[in-house]
Amino acid sequence: MTAVTSTSPATPPSTTGASGVSSAQRRKRRITPARIALHIVLMTAALGWLAPVLLAVYASLRPYADTAAHGYLSWPERLTFDYYIQVWQDAELPRYFFNTLIVTVPAVIIILFLASFVAYAIARVRLPGARVLLVLFTAGNLLPPQVLITPLYVLYNKLPLPWWISDSMSLYDSYLGLIAIHVAFQLGFCVFVLANYMRQIPTEITEAALVDGAGLWKRYLTVTLPLARPALAALATLEFTWIYNDFLWALVLMSSGDKLPITSALNNLRGQFFTDYNLLAAGAVLVALPTIIVFNLLQKQFIAGLTLGANKG
């Protein structure tokens, strides 16, 4: 297994050499006015992206009466973590975080599992119409989910489920329905990325396995899948954040407030008329935190995931 992995040209030595040279050159480069200008532009742009987040954090630390009277860009009278405590306890955030996990984790696993099947079939099994299949899955990405809201809503209400699967007795207002919709909409993208990635794995490796007598299952499970691990990791990261961030489907396909995932449950902090925007900011910061952490820890996979399959193998 290790021998097989090392033969894959994931990082050709020439690339490493080239980047090493260029960074050495950069270090030698003198500070010119153009570079200073570049850095000023970059810093301004970075600040522009960070400003809303920082403002939300700042607002969440100040009492509403203070910001209402003096505006959000004023000097604080006092800073407090009260809103965070209030959000965590009164708004029962932990419960909604758990709901999100109930939807996200199975959805990501099922998506990757199914997508790797299709991708392997397209990339490595000589299937008649494989290209059409790939086009079909890719075309699915172009379908705007919003146009399907009404038909899906009606369909979900008409699909009965027994009581022990869904207490709503239908696919509507059930976790199963929500997981299914995410699987359906994310599958196309994952198949596209994985198929392109699997195509890049040298055919010689699978052929060698075939010569050694490995069946289709064995070649998929023990040869191709481990080699596709970088792609799977990248996709898992991307899909996790995408499904975590979903707001629309839970809103449309759920009716029980206590089953809502965290993003939709944030609405519970809004009142009939009055909304404490600083409290809402505290909630939003807490909800955004997991994606920010995931992004920073797995930044490499994240960027890999966005560029994977960008070029045709």
Partner: peptide, 19 residues
Amino acid sequence: NTVDHNTFQENINRYLQGT
């Protein structure tokens, strides 16, 4: 079963015809 005010209001048709 608590749902936020605006969502509840906008979903009332779906809510009453669903469960």
